[in-house]
Amino acid sequence: MSDVETRNNPDEKRYEALVDGEVAGFAQYQLTDQLIVFTHTEVDPKFEGQGIGSKLARFALDDVRDNQSQRKVLPICPFIKGWIGHHPEYVELVYGAPKSTAKD
């Protein structure tokens, strides 16, 4: 498989994963002043099983964290919600999640 390019496409309100310039998957979102609500994630069937969804989720959540917009994530999309569940380092981004008590 070719390299996966990831990007935020704010005009379409979605994060996208591209393979050879073709949209292989996307994570749709809605924005409020305080939240980024992930509503739907989809990977083209011909790219399933190649880690596209995971790369997309990681990129999108890292972008939210790095953007420092102070928005919290509300993962309505089952894929994003499940992905966060398997990657606890992203739980702090989730709206309503308790603050970590772990020491640095």
Rank of each mutant, 00 (worst) to 15 (best):
K46Y: 05
V4W: 04
I84K: 09
I52M: 04
G96V: 10
K72T: 12
A97P: 04
K55W: 07
R71C: 06
A24G: 08
G21S: 09
R14F: 07
A57D: 03
N9V: 09
P98T: 00
R14L: 13
A97G: 06
T101R: 13
T39R: 13
I84C: 11
W83S: 01
D33G: 15
I84G: 12
E22N: 09
K103M: 14
K13F: 01
I84M: 09
S69F: 04
V94N: 00
V91S: 15
R58T: 13
D20R: 07
T6M: 12
A97K: 02
R7G: 10
G21E: 00
L61V: 08
M1P: 04
K99D: 06
R14M: 10
L74M: 09
D63V: 11
L31Y: 00
S2L: 05
T32A: 15
Q30N: 15
E12W: 00
F79M: 11
G25E: 05
A17F: 04
K103Y: 08
T32G: 15
G49C: 02
V37H: 06
K13Y: 00
D62Q: 13
C77K: 10
G53R: 06
Q70Y: 07
W83V: 04
A24E: 03
E92Q: 15
Y95F: 15
F59P: 06
D63G: 09
P78S: 13
Q28N: 07
P75E: 05
S100N: 08
A60C: 07
P88Y: 02
F79K: 11
E5F: 04
K72A: 10
K81S: 14
E92V: 15
A57L: 01
V19G: 05
V91W: 12
A97N: 04
D63E: 11
D11A: 15
P45G: 14
G53K: 09
V43A: 03
D44F: 07
C77Y: 08
T32Q: 12
